[in-house]
Amino acid sequence: MLAARRRPVSMRGLRGYVLRRMLLVPVTLLVVSLIVFALAQLVPGDVGRAILGPYATAAQVHRLDAQLGYDRPLLVRYWQWVTGFVTGNWGNSPVLQVPIRSLIAARIGNSLLLAAVAFVIVVPVSVLLGVLSGLRPGSQADRAISVTGLALLGLPEFVGGTFLLVIVGVLLHWLPTTAQAPPGSGLATRLHYLLLPALALVPVLLGYLSRMARAGTAETAQAPFIRTATLKGLPRRVVLGRHLLPSALLPTLTVVSVQVSYLVGGLVVIEELFNYPGIGKLFLDSALTHDIPTLADITMLLAAIYLIISLLADIGYALLDPRIRLAPS
């Protein structure tokens, strides 16, 4: 279940690794673009008919198809879509009749803010819980934390979100039940309104991160260099802070990419549950209204964000791990 500790680098050194790793991003994006384009072609019926409805004449449908470029060959359309995506020329949403770029631009900030609030809550808490249980494997506290973490890991976000909404919002009145602050309010008010949706994103991330932190801590605590540090009389604070934690938490960093993948799924769910105008809600709305061009562009954007973050995480890991950083190139 837990990803094995990655040792991404052989003796060829950091620079070669980073280069190869960076090259992987456009290659994977190309494969993703092929999958997305293939799926977009599978829409039943033709696009013009889907937009104009059953009462339009065949000539009208044909004219709209031509206008949208759906009468051109597949390869041409794929090329136009990919080059358009790369150059930022994303076209209009056929359903909303608005440029896709402005649709996404208006919402991506909201999603990033929500994701940031969730991460600020989840990272310290899960590292603390993970280290606590990893330092004393098998103890009562450890077993309680790991069973709870496992249970949280399996809980769909909308279920945990519903519980939080009902208990914290409706019954206790501690936090507002809508995610959006009244227009014109300051950042503090916006954050206050975002607290409940962000808390709803926490459980899944918490379960996974705390398990990684626990595994890393428990493994490192057994390492000879920790015993050496303890035996040479260093205070426990120094052993923990300077020797144990930096190497114990490295593997946790490598699962950041998995976390981003969970977070993207979680954002779609939580933005839908709290009716919050972010990119996840836009994604789901375009899926439900068959707005395939918007859907395809959002998917590509999310895949690109995901790939870049996991690239940064892997490079960060390589930079932090002395075995890799100091390896001869």
Binding site: V32, V36, V264, G265, V268, T299, L302, L307
Partner: peptide, 10 residues
């Protein structure tokens, strides 16, 4: 590479 739920919805 594509997050599971995104692929499913797509």
């Amino acid at each position: 590479t594509i997050p599971g739920i995104i692929l499913d919805v797509l």
